[in-house]
Design a protein around this nucleic acid. Structure first.
Length: 195
DNA sequence: GCACAGATGAGCT
DNA sequence: GCTCATCTGTGCA
């Protein structure tokens, strides 16, 4: 392992909304036996459990699935959605079930391998959605509970976004007023965001 | 044990 | 824009 500069755990010790913005432009790296894949994070969504009807952990619901969100910040929370796996970063610290969904990446390393996994898509469409990026990077439920500070999955400093936009989240239509919270963040003008 | 919903994506109309 | 693939967790009997 050379040039290993994963962000230390204290990077994750800030408010969930701040962390969601801080993660934009950072490099998400996944190592597998097939090779290393990475990409800049260009789109995130914050889920703040206690007050957020759209979150799995709404009202502090603590179950086997959401357990990881009650743990330390900076852990991998993977979740199976139909035929896809979604990946989150836990936040809020111990006993606060908050998390940040990674919705889109800009592919950097291992693009050929990603295209192989995704079935030869164009580079633009490799990772422009939460289900697509996990398949491209090879992230699965096996990664549940890992920490983002060390291999095989970690986050390093990347670029500094020029402008950040925010707006309502996607795909949570029947969550009452929570669907209008402007907790989705993306790098303004980046062409790899999901929509 | 069983039924059902869900932070999606691809393909077809 | 609509359907459906296909899997885990949850809730209830």
């Amino acid at each position: 392992m050379t040039n290993f500069h994963a962000l230390a755990i204290d990077f994750y010790e800030k408010s969930t909304l701040d962390l969601a913005k801080s993660l934009l432009g950072c490099l998400l790296v996944k190592e597998t036996s097939e090779g290393i894949c990475s990409g800049y994070i260009v789109e995130t969504e914050a889920y703040i459990g206690p007050e957020d009807r759209a979150a799995h952990s709404f009202n502090n619901r603590r179950t086997k699935r959401t357990e990881i969100m009650f743990g330390h910040s900076g852990l991998v929370y993977t979740y199976q959605m139909h035929t896809h796996t979604l990946v989150n970063v836990t936040s809020g610290g111990v006993d606060k079930p908050e998390a940040i969904l990674i919705r889109a990446l800009e592919p950097i390393e291992g693009i050929e391998l990603m295209q192989q996994r995704r079935g030869l898509q164009t580079e633009k469409k490799l990772t422009n959605g939460p289900g697509k990026l996990t398949k491209a990077l090879g992230i699965t439920m096996q990664d549940y509970g890992l920490c983002y500070t060390k291999p095989p999955i970690y986050i390093t400093p990347g670029i500094l976004p020029k402008h950040i936009s925010s707006g309502p989240r996607i795909g949570i239509g029947n969550s009452g007023e929570a669907k209008d919270y402007p907790w989705r963040f993306w790098i303004t003008g980046n062409s790899y965001i999901s929509k």
